[in-house]
Design a protein around this nucleic acid. Structure first.
Length: 235
DNA sequence: TGCCAGGCCGGGT
DNA sequence: ACCCGGCATGGC
């Protein structure tokens, strides 16, 4: 019998608001997601899976140069053209599969129309997107938040790592557990979720990598419990 | 040089 | 319900 619904150590109720305020004050608005159209958000979400954004962005550029950064071009392109365009993003065969899976699903379920897709009720849409092979919770929530503007927090690796090192969630909390915590703690404001997640990723890239935490320079250093981030080993 | 990067799947416990 | 190996390229 668990005493708490969430895999967390709850501190003050609005500690996350302070984290957000501090990051925003230090780093300013991030203007995410770095994509122009809803389809670009979807493709970017696939291409960035376990990949440095730099490489995903290169793949996006290649799609644009190849004239296949749109539904029409994408359908017309050969499998090999698609693979070659996205090669630098890594896992390119799987990601090509995932993109084609999405296009087929869009045709079957929404007659090929992004407008119909995005007019679907959000909770139902999330459920349906998760049935696409290659679409996991992070990919789906990225699409829902950054393309559909719905309040689903993207509890990605940087988010989980930063919150864990601050003792706000347990080290091995699941994606869903961390998201549940965030949803239960923050007001369901898509703009807030958008900016907060972007700020956490930028903070993670600069100050909170897997094997290196440069906490002395991190805007959140004042909130760190104890002398050292939780989950970091070493002297 | 080895490890890491804004995951996800399938098979095994 | 977790745990693991595989997937692939580019940067430090």
């Amino acid at each position: 019998m668990r005493s708490s619904r969430f895999p967390i150590a709850v501190k003050t109720p609005n500690v996350l608001r302070k984290y957000y305020q501090s990051l925003f004050d230090h780093l300013g608005p991030q203007n995410w997601w770095p994509a122009r159209t809803r389809l670009e958000v979807i493709l970017g979400a696939i291409l960035v899976q376990n990949t440095a954004w730099r490489n995903a962005a290169l793949a996006m550029e290649h799609l644009k140069w190849g004239g296949i950064l749109g539904l029409r071009g994408l359908r017309k392109a050969s499998r090999k053209d698609l693979e070659n365009a996205i090669r630098q993003a890594g896992f390119y065969r799987q990601k090509a599969d995932t993109i084609l899976n999405f296009l087929n699903w869009l045709d079957l379920r929404f007659d090929g129309s992004l407008n119909r897709l995005f007019s679907t009720e959000p909770a139902l849409l999330r459920h349906e997107l998760l049935t696409i092979k290659g679409f996991g919770p992070e990919t789906v929530d990225t699409i829902l938040l950054y393309a559909a503007k719905q309040p689903f927090f993207v509890a990605d690796a940087y988010t989980r790592r930063i919150l864990a090192r601050h003792g706000l969630v347990h080290l091995n909390s699941s994606y869903g557990g961390v998201q549940e915590y965030l949803h239960s703690t923050l007001p369901p404001d898509p703009g807030l979720f958008n900016e907060f997640h972007a700020l956490l990723v930028e903070t993670g890239k600069r100050y909170c990598r897997r094997r290196e935490a440069r906490c002395r320079e991190c805007p959140l250093r004042g909130f760190l419990p104890g002398g050292r981030p939780a989950g970091m080993e070493g002297p």
